[in-house]
Amino acid sequence: MKLKFAMTLGVAVMVLAAACGGGQPEEVAPVPNQDSIAAEQARRDSLAREQARRDSIARARRLEEESIRREREEAVRMERELTEAVLAILMTHVNFDFDRSSIRPGGDTEVLEMKLAVLQANAGLEVVIVGNADERGSDEYNMALGMRRALSAKKWLTDRGIAPNRVAVRSMGEEDPVDPRSNEEAWAKNRRDEFAVVVGGDVLILPPGM
């Protein structure tokens, strides 16, 4: 019995060796008998095991790829969230007093300081500042006043080292109110600089410490 088993194993190993040998011709045409059936069974078992092993490896690889992809997506999502956070800093309005274009100390200066940090952290970023006025005052004068407000913020940034060619200026005068009402609250909101990205806004780095 032991011998028979050993023989079967021997045949199986031979068969396996032949199978794994890759290209070696099979010289003995087996005659179906008890042993060969067992050997065939063993060969099938062995193939199944091999298949299982391969499946396992593929599964592991798939999982790994999935995990890498998820990590990459997570990174992209983080990057996008960061970019959006940076853009939110850029989009914050700078507001002005009536018929004035000077940068007010306090909140408006803090807003500009954050924008300055963003421009410093993102060397490829170029922006446009669009100045706006409230509906009071002459329509044509308000166009000039809006430009004066955009230039005022631009000067604040370039005085602190930002290259002038990274900051474009435009004016919408009183033509583009964010609040169309005619009261103090609306006028205060409408007297503003708006910032927009010209180039380099796809991926933005959050400045250190923010």
Partner: peptide
């Protein structure tokens, strides 16, 4: 560029206007 507040000269040859930009208006 931002050009506005145009006015013709009386002979119609010239148009005068305001331009707002990096130099102010």
């Amino acid at each position: 560029l931002l050009n506005y507040a145009a006015a013709f000269s009386p002979d119609g040859a010239l148009v005068a206007f305001a331009r707002s930009g990096d130099e102010g208006t």
